[in-house]
């Protein structure tokens, strides 16, 4: 027997363990992409090669500690990862197992106290975790699909084609739903139980993206609050624009004062004229839409919005709030 410890093996294991811990920790805070992770690493002068990161992410996802979402941003697919309930349990266990010195060490390394991780609960710095885990979302999604496609038989394959989550994750969600008594499996097809039907009705109402789109609009400051949730539903540009809006919060100017040919995003519309609002919205003058002033006339503007040119009077332009937004 070799008395000397295998130094290479030891460091590798230490590194691997810490790395997993790090990913789970970060992905528990909020959904992160691979790029986010490698960038975060830079803060600690820690180069992480993609070759190392992605297999690890894949591995953790396969084991069910992470769940992966694909988000289409400007035509590119970005994968986002989020720690699952199981991953959180693992984090908790690790925290409980570790001794004080190790916790101190991790606090320095991660840059946040490792003592008070309120896994699955509230965290500091104004970032409120979504009330639902992604597992919950996937579960609700499955119920949603069952409700939406009432007329057809719902196979596991069909669910997999509808939900962007790994197969193992879906099967776990289905298992839990079965345990909750919301669905039954009949000859390989998913069937709603009486309870399940009631729940579906609730979900279908509750789960419109717009509900959230909405809330964001009214309370820009809490935009990041449910970003995971949004990322789950809204993809690509809309999401990006919402994110941009949140960054620009408070700096928007009335369209009236906006410069010629500058590109902007509409942040808000303020009006007292009743019917006008619907007309504006139905013409694409809507928070989050891009807008550009093409021409100025003595008493109004010609703007380019939703790929169309529309004339807006000065009085109306006062009520449209915009922020500068260079094409990314």
């Amino acid at each position: 027997m070799n008395k000397n410890i295998d130094l290479k093996n030891f460091t590798q294991q230490l590194e691997r363990g810490l790395f997993c811990l790090y990913i789970l920790w970060k992905a528990n805070e909020q959904a992160v992409s691979g790029i986010d992770l490698s960038e975060l690493e830079h803060d600690h002068d820690h180069e992480v090669s993609a070759g190392r990161l992605y297999p690890k992410l894949h591995d953790l996802t396969e084991k069910g500690y992470l769940v992966m979402d694909e988000v289409n941003e400007h035509g590119k697919i970005h994968k986002y990862y989020k720690t699952t309930e199981e991953g959180r349990e693992l984090l908790k266990k690790v925290r409980d197992e570790l001794g004080e010195p190790m916790k101190d060490f991790l606090t320095v390394w991660i840059g946040k106290p490792f003592y008070n991780i309120e896994i699955g609960g509230k965290e500091g710095k104004g970032y409120k975790k979504p009330e639902k885990s992604i597992l919950q979302i996937v579960k609700d999604d499955i119920l949603h699909i069952c409700g939406e496609y009432k007329s057809r038989k719902i196979s596991l394959k069909f669910i997999e084609s509808k939900i962007k989550a790994s197969a193992s994750f879906i099967s776990r969600a289905i298992k839990q739903l079965e345990d909750d008594g919301l669905i039954k499996l009949q000859k390989g097809f998913v069937v709603l139980t009486e309870n399940g039907r009631g729940k579906v009705k609730y979900i279908i109402r509750k789960y419109s993206i717009l509900e959230d789109y909405f809330k964001e609009r009214r309370d820009n400051k809490n935009l990041y609050k449910e970003v995971d949730f949004l990322e789950h539903y809204i993809s690509g540009e809309a999401l990006n624009n919402i994110k941009k809006l949140s960054t620009f919060d408070g700096t928007s100017t009335p369209l009236e004062e906006f410069g010629l040919n500058r590109k902007g995003l509409i942040t808000d519309i303020e009006f007292s004229v009743g019917g006008l609002f619907e007309r504006m919205v139905s013409m694409g003058i809507f928070p989050g839409e891009k807008i550009r002033i093409m021409h100025k006339t003595p008493d109004g503007f010609v703007v380019y919005v939703s790929n169309k040119k529309i004339a807006i009077g000065k009085d109306i332009a006062k009520g449209v709030k915009v922020v500068e937004h260079a094409e990314s």
Partner: peptide, 14 residues
């Protein structure tokens, strides 16, 4: 009334 319009347009944009 506004919120309904916004909601509807939000779905359309989505």
């Amino acid at each position: 009334a506004w919120d309904i319009s916004i909601n509807r347009y939000g779905t359309a944009a989505f």
